[in-house]
Design a protein around this nucleic acid. Sequence first.
RNA 1: GGGCGGUUAGCUCAGUUGGUUAGAGCGCAUGCUUUACACGCAUGAUGUCGCAGGUUCGAGUCCCGCACCGCCCACCA
Length: 821
Amino acid sequence: MATDMPGGSGMAKGYEPQQVEGRIYQYWLDDNVFDAEVNPHKESFCIVIPPPNVTGILHMGHALDNAIQDLLTRWKRMSGYSALWLPGTDHAGIATQNVAEKELAKQGVTRHDLGREEFVKRVWELKERHHSHIVEQLKRLGGSLDWRRERFTLDEVCAKAVREAFVTLYEKGLIYRGAYMINWCPRCETGLSDLEVEHEEHEGNLWYIHYPQSDGSHGVVVATTRPETMLGDTGVAVNPNDERYASLVGKTVRLPLMDRDIPVVADDHVDVEFGTGAVKVTPAHDPNDLEIAQRHNLPSIVVIDKNGKMTAETGSYAGMDRYECRKQVVSDLEELGLLEKIDSHTHSVGHCQRCRTVVEPLVSEQWFLKMEPLAAKGLAAVQSGEVRFVPERWSKVYTDWLENIRDWPISRQLWWGHAIPVWYCEGCGQQICTREDPTKCPACGGSELRRDPDVLDTWFSSALWPFSTLGWPERTPELEYFYPTSVLVTGYDIIFFWVARMIMMGLELEGEKPFSEVFIHGLVRDEKGRKISKSLGNNIDPIELIENYGADALRFALIQLITHGQDLTYSEDRMVGARNFCNKLWNASRFVLMNQDEMKAPCPFGTEADCKLSLADEWILSRQAAVLEEVDGHLQRYDLAQAAEALYQYTWTEFCDWYVELSKPRLYGDNINVVEQQQWLLLRLLSNILRALHPFMPFVTEEIWQLAEPGKGSIALADYPLGNPAHRNPKAEAGMAMVMDITNQIRSWRSQLALQPHQKIKVRLVASEEKQAVLQQVEHGMKALARLEAVEYAEAAGEEKALTAMVQGVQVVLPLAGAIE
RNA sequence: GGGCGGUUAGCUCAGUUGGUUAGAGCGCAUGCUUUACACGCAUGAUGUCGCAGGUUCGAGUCCCGCACCGCCCACCA
């Protein structure tokens, strides 16, 4: 037989990804397979990568996210689209600055020691290090990214977009500056948006503190979770309907420790049920208190500074850390006999998303983006279906957030990021926000200008990503062609941070949605269902898995695990299963290829009387048509796991376990026409399998493709196979189902009788003529599969000692005497 | 306080518009070096589909309620 034919002979017995992947990726790069061009004759397809943060390396969640994007891109590329998957990374302002600070801390250095310029230089170095590993990871994963178009959120192209966006929004009156109470991280020394604060249940206390009335009478007891803030109290509030305190309203009480008289006011906000029904009012350090204070004209006294230390206003407590101060205040109150009691009390405490420090609500000067007008457009786009979430339920999450949105504080008191393009005239105080750096004040002509020291929230530049990467605000051909992009693929954890803001910015600045669909997937968790994090040490570098199992196995395993926006649990078992599947495909291909004679293509079907499609041929063609159609439907609906499952089952069970086995008797027969036809058909079926699987498992399929059809170019540019309805053949499927059932029945008997492989048996099939005809079509194959020596077709007859079964209207008879051995 | 998701075989999960004996992978048991593959082949065991009602000829699949687990949002001094 033709075991030395092209392809087959060069193939190792097992698939060895390490021997293949690097070479194949280089081949793709050399052949510019991933380069997407503006091509008016093709429809465009575009995905912009969610730019990974340059804070570190990619984890399994990224591997999943990118496996999905690559799958979709490859599928569309093969389907005739000019498909662009645009790479890039994110400077990730606060996150990266934190990482850099931690590295410095190991050397005992702070960013302040270095100064802004030197510090930023160090962060750039850190960015380069992480960036190169990230790029390496994406390549190892097989990402079909157009590297020529790579962007970084802080590069000059993106910077220009950021500048244009800020100035445009400023000119529209949507950006304003002011002093407002927002979250402040005392460690990072910057303001934060609400999204950047994570709340955690904290088992704390409720301290009951006695504030005597100024005239020396009893006064009031207030309950607080933060006793240290009492130093900044400027009032006590009670509910206007609370009769217990009616007589106190309008009077003053003596603030202990500070010896200040503060008024008792009546305010609806106070809950009669909670604590004592009396609330201490600290306008400088609590948003609710601030509102009460504004309603009653109470002054604000700042007692905690931007580093979490007590201010000079606190007298003897000045300079103390806030928690140290808390202890001191409590003990001092206790000493004065003013601490009534302490209850344990669980409440949620806000922490800085990046450094876990407890945030402090503080009034600070910040830039804000007005959200209502933007949100209105963002809401309309999703409500009208212009932008569609998959799964659909996330659109409700999106909608709920936008309907209750507050203005976005966009300035950060950081050093790493896009500088805010605003200058202040030292002469007249004029605010200058322009596209070009100003040299003199347009109001007074003064030339002493001071640039705003703040930078923008990193998500501001991320929000522009779908169009900044395409060259906006320039009207580039790429922008015209690829925008709006096709689909955004990301986890549900950044719907607010990123997805919503991209939609709003795209609509506001470019006048069009940034993408038509948002495919939301879950987060990858470890075997124990825990979130992946550095502190837990469960942060696996996908490259480790790629080295152990191959990139295709990793990708396929992850794709198989996707459920509808549900979190997915990574497990080593899945990796093994996917690796085995790659190997199965490799070996099935090896079988097909080593059984290829030199083809006289196209195969001359029907030139001989016996050279026509067998039942098995018709069946497998029908099944393949059905599966390809099914896969197409799954892909259209983003049911990627189901598409993978359908291909897996088809390839392994139907193609390998049944069809390949059924083909052997024909393949090894001596009718040359039959042999050639069988070879041709196997190759053709394999070609479809390879192409259908390529978006899932790019490396192994490309390698086999190259071996099978050298010189035909990359499989990545071949046509994605669609189910051919003409091949659908219900009759053949029903016929094969009968054959398979009968074969299984015989196999089962063989197993029960503990027959050895060399022991062949003879069975009698009692069936109508029509069914006999069907069975005879695959008799050779069936005999091989069930290890039959012979099949007799007969009229019904009684057997004395025989196993019999009715299978789909066929009586299967295995005589126990004479039929074995 | 609102909202969302989950609860199916020992484990991880599929089950489209309700329809004949509920599936996969891994694991388990038994037997196979059958000329692509032991990362394999074959045979086999395993489920009161969270609980309790309802609609229906028929429900894992639809409706109501409940329980438990998880997540998100919210100005719970």
